[in-house]
């Protein structure tokens, strides 16, 4: 500010603005709420087994990602990750690059609800949480990635793997401030056979879908079947499981998944359509025709695809 020749604000105005800015940033509603509900976690929680990678220069992104990846059972060094997530000219990493890099390692990154309770719930169920903080003020941001590994509600504290500190302890209120300036961004990075404690059905399926785009069908098949353990009726998970197995070339297993989908959702035309296709691929034309006809009868979105499926199968059954 001092170096700026054009700006000569009245000192009084300057302090008033500063005061207002500070006051506006003082409330910590989430911390207050969390401490009120402290009875849910009377004991401090700390994931001592989560490894620590001290960051180099500005490379908190690779260090934090390595922390959660290793915490999820992989063996990856920050140096391996740096070329994938670190932008030298920005001296930092972007959030979507961290997500993409986690996916390339066969992990399902899941963005948490913007609530402190979501972080503590995940940590309490053994999942370290990667967070984005802005350690400075919004006008001159100092972005920082760190990993929450513990908390103590009685003393209103968070424990983090952060920068050069293996066990950085910060007051809950301070954390809420810095995290809010990071737009409440927090993720867990888990293997496909493990669900985030706070996962919701559709957002979780979305994050598995991103792995489908990388054609990691083995991983998506595991994630979808895991999702079915928590949401047994989820049409998206049934279909995703069938489609993943189909992509892996396991027609029998795909058939089983689509059949389960038709049982859970007798009005889901997509399930009958894909089942018809899998049966056709096994040259079971009669059964295939029956299922394709069912899909056409139900209709709805993708009706043209259903008619196409039926037409192609009929071309075989009529001969």
């Amino acid at each position: 500010m001092r170096g700026d020749r054009n700006a000569r604000p009245e000192p009084g105005v300057f302090f008033l603005v500063l005061l207002l800015a500070t006051l506006a940033g003082c409330a910590t509603p989430q911390t207050d709420r969390l401490i009120e509900s402290a009875a849910a976690f009377p004991q401090p929680v700390e994931l001592t087994a989560v490894p620590f990678f001290p960051q180099e220069a500005y490379q908190c992104g690779p260090a934090a990602l390595a922390t959660v990846l290793n915490g999820s059972g992989l063996n990856v060094a920050p140096e391996t990750l740096a070329p994938q997530v670190y932008l030298p000219e920005r001296q930092g990493s972007l959030q979507f690059e961290l997500l993409a890099a986690a996916r390339r390692h066969g992990r399902v990154p899941y963005v948490l609800r913007p609530q402190l309770e979501a972080i503590t719930t995940e940590v309490a169920s053994g999942h370290p949480v990667l967070v984005l903080q802005n350690l400075s003020l919004a006008i001159s941001p100092q972005w920082h990635y760190a990993v929450v590994v513990g908390f103590d509600l009685t003393h209103a504290e968070m424990m983090l793997r952060s920068g050069h500190e293996r066990r950085h302890i910060t007051p809950l209120r301070t954390f809420e401030h810095t995290w809010r300036r990071g737009d409440y961004w927090a993720i867990v990075v888990l293997p496909p056979d493990e669900l985030p404690q706070t996962a919701e059905e559709l957002p979780y399926l979305q994050s598995v879908l991103a792995l489908e785009k990388l054609k990691r069908w083995q991983d998506t098949a595991i994630a979808y079947s895991k999702a079915l353990t928590r949401w047994p009726k989820s049409l998206g998970a049934h279909m995703g499981l069938g489609n993943s197995r189909y992509a892996l070339g396991d027609l029998r297993a795909a058939e089983a998944a689509f059949r389960a989908a038709t049982r859970a959702h007798p009005n889901a035309a997509v399930a009958f359509n894909n089942l018809a296709q899998v049966l056709a691929d096994q040259k079971r034309w009669r059964e295939a025709e029956q299922m394709a006809r069912k899909a056409v009868e139900i209709g709805g979105d993708n009706a043209d695809v259903f008619r196409q499926t039926l037409a192609r199968i009929e071309a075989r059954t009529k001969n």
Binding site: Y246, V270, Q308
Partner: peptide, 18 residues
């Protein structure tokens, strides 16, 4: 494969559910 284009992808299903 015989009629690969006839499969409805997971994305369409999840999108519709959303």
């Amino acid at each position: 494969p015989v009629a690969n284009a006839a499969m409805v992808g997971t994305e369409a299903v999840v999108h519709a559910a959303q």
